[in-house]
């Protein structure tokens, strides 16, 4: 199938190096210590953070650092077919683990020993790139909860179809079965904390695709920084001079 026309346009009208429209909002769940809503095109996710708080199950408590837990779910209405998926299926467990590891790598857990941080992310609408959107939402929510972090962590995916590297695959492109590289980075430290791909790619092409995903991550980081800055301004304004 043709995913990039000879005119250089993708099926949804983007060019290969373009990302979908992104939008982030802080404070979607008032009850949580921190929460955020993040949107990449038609992929919409919500994240809520509780903590740091006392560890629920004493046996899990870690004496020198905080316990980070993560739960990823997909709303039943998030895909077109409204299928009831059993909670804790393999895919969700895997994505929960990926998100937990990625977030844990940037939270300064040693500052909060014997405590617990819970991250809940839920996909409201799925259109490809859900794990990236979840990580971006979680970053915003953690920042909103005021949890100390080394750096923001942002994520974006890139793929390779019709011999062209494509940034931020949507569902149609994702289901083409080509390689899909999901990258998470710490933009200021310039470090990669997440790298996933479940296909084969020759090394030189892989490097191009990964570089493209990293550029995407950086763009998202800039945007998230703006959102946070705007939020801080708002807070300052509300608190009054």
């Amino acid at each position: 199938m043709e995913f990039v026309s000879p005119e250089g346009l993708r099926l949804d009208g983007r060019r290969p190096m373009e990302m979908r429209q992104i939008r982030g909002e802080i404070g979607a769940v008032a009850k949580a210590d921190g929460s955020a809503f993040f949107e990449m095109g038609n992929t919409k996710v919500i994240a809520a953070v509780y903590g740091p708080r006392e560890v629920e199950n004493r046996s899990q408590q870690i004496s020198d650092q905080a316990l980070v837990r993560c739960e990823y779910t997909m709303a039943n209405f998030s895909t077109g077919d409204r299928m009831r998926k059993p909670k804790g299926d393999r895919r969700s467990t895997e994505i929960s683990l990926v998100i937990r590891q990625t977030m844990e790598a940037c939270i300064l857990t040693h500052l909060m020993p014997r405590s617990q941080i819970d991250i809940f992310v839920q996909v409201l609408q799925a259109d490809g790139g859900t794990r990236s959107a979840c990580i971006n939402a979680a970053t915003l929510a953690l920042a909103d909860a005021g949890i100390p972090m080394r750096d923001l962590v942002t994520s974006c995916s890139a793929g390779y179809l019709n011999s062209t590297p494509l940034l931020d695959l949507n569902y149609v492109e994702d289901s083409a079965g080509g390689p899909d590289v999901t990258v998470g980075i710490l933009p200021k430290l310039d470090k990669v904390t997440l790298l996933q791909m479940d296909a084969k790619l020759p090394m030189d092409i892989f490097e191009n695709v990964m570089q493209l995903a990293i550029e995407g991550c950086k763009a998202i980081a800039n945007y998230i920084r703006e959102v946070l800055l705007e939020n801080t301004k708002q807070l300052e304004y509300r608190r009054g001079p």
């Binding site: 949804d12 983007r14 979908r20 077919d81």
Partner: peptide, 27 residues
């Protein structure tokens, strides 16, 4: 500029689903 295209499509199993796709307009 963003347009959203939505249409109804029948799946292989015979179910009818609504498909929403993004459609970016350019200058």
């Amino acid at each position: 500029m963003l347009q959203s295209k939505s249409f109804v499509r029948k799946t292989k199993q015979g179910k009818v689903v609504k498909v929403v796709r993004e459609h970016y307009l350019r200058d």
